[in-house]
């Protein structure tokens, strides 16, 4: 286990400098929308929170962390904050594979296409698409979280944004539940799958749907993806510990203790594996953590895009 203080100060430093937890410049991190025809004007926007884009970086950095957890070198993590942001960004770009980046970007392209097919009017404003700060909140750095949330909410209000369409449970929870409390700004926040109305297709298969904690328990939204998949003739097989009682994927511990994170995800993986069906995740953290242990898992948007 790393010293939480070192990790928290590193993440807080990065968020203050670059507005994301890795210190990666935005133009390197957020490129999925390049060459994708999307409306640029409107008060209803797709807000990715940069979580899916961060997935390849999360995978690489947690691999690095795992390599020297509990070793004497672990204490040098505190020095990482003295690395210039541009250098860290370049490092992250070199460390992550093109294939992984393309897979993450494809998830977001799929979501945009699914919304368009469902007749949802939305714009995409990369200049307003910020990380929500949820990791700061989870780690207990309330001071930096509030400062960052006020910055993000202020930008959105200033631009006249009314509705935010989110793509992951952490960002959805932050914007829907936490931002009104800490920023005083309230937006209509909808998870993308709440707006989809496509049915039909010919799924004809069974999947094990893994509910993330924030959708299953905190926001109680897990019945909607379930219904959507059923609409495509895809059966969601019963999974031990689901919906309100879903089992954590271990992701929240990966920055402090990759070992602990691994132990927790293995327990969840066994529950999902016991169904015998391929796994569907709907959170970038769950997706990444399940992939790490060799699970046959794909994102909800991938399966929906194939059917719609």
């Amino acid at each position: 286990m790393f010293n939480p203080r070192d990790i928290i100060e590193l993440i807080a430093h990065n968020v203050k400098k670059s507005r994301n937890p890795f210190g990666v410049p935005r133009m390197i991190l957020n490129r999925w929308w390049w060459r994708t025809p999307l409306e640029k004007k409107g008060d209803s926007i797709l807000f990715t929170g940069l979580m899916y884009q961060s997935l390849p970086i999360i995978a690489k950095t947690t691999d690095q962390l795992a390599a020297f957890e509990d070793s004497p070198r672990a204490r040098y993590i505190r020095l990482a904050r003295y690395m210039p942001g541009a250098l860290a960004g370049l490092g992250a770009a070199l460390l992550t594979g093109r294939k992984e980046r393309r897979q993450s970007d494809q998830i977001l392209k799929n979501i945009a296409t699914l919304l368009q097919k469902s007749g949802v009017r939305f714009a995409y404003r990369p200049d307003l698409d910020h990380y929500s700060g949820i990791l700061l909140y989870d780690l207990g750095d309330q001071e930096t979280f509030v400062e960052h949330a006020r910055y993000v909410a202020g930008q959105l209000k200033h631009a006249g944004i009314r509705r935010l369409i989110t793509v992951d449970p952490h960002t959805t929870y932050a914007l829907r539940e936490l931002y009104p409390k800490v920023t005083g700004h309230r937006f209509e926040v909808r998870a993308y799958f709440e707006l989809l109305n496509a049915t039909g297709g010919n799924g004809q298969r069974k999947v094990a749907l893994h509910d993330p904690c924030f959708y299953g328990r905190y926001l109680e939204l897990s019945d909607i993806p379930n219904r959507l998949l059923n609409g495509f003739n895809i059966e969601c097989v019963p999974v031990k510990n689901s919906a309100n009682f879903t089992h954590c994927c271990g992701g929240p511990a990966e920055s402090i203790s990759p070992k602990l994170s691994h132990a927790v995800v293995m327990r969840r993986f066994k529950e999902l594996q016991a169904t015998g069906a391929p796994i569907v995740a709907m959170c970038p953290i769950c997706l990444g953590n399940l992939k790490k242990v060799g699970a046959d898992v794909e994102d909800l948007s991938m399966i929906l895009a194939r059917c719609a």
């Binding site: 207990g140 309330q142 905190y218 929240p252 927790v264």
Partner: peptide, 29 residues
């Protein structure tokens, strides 16, 4: 304190609705 996953299962099941997950988060803060 940072072992906690903030998964919310304790809060979901607490018979006193004491919100144990939030208490741990408050201690972290």
């Amino acid at each position: 304190l940072w072992r906690c996953l903030h998964c919310g299962l304790c809060t979901q099941t607490c018979p006193r609705e004491a919100n144990p997950g939030e208490l741990i988060l408050g201690l972290r803060r």
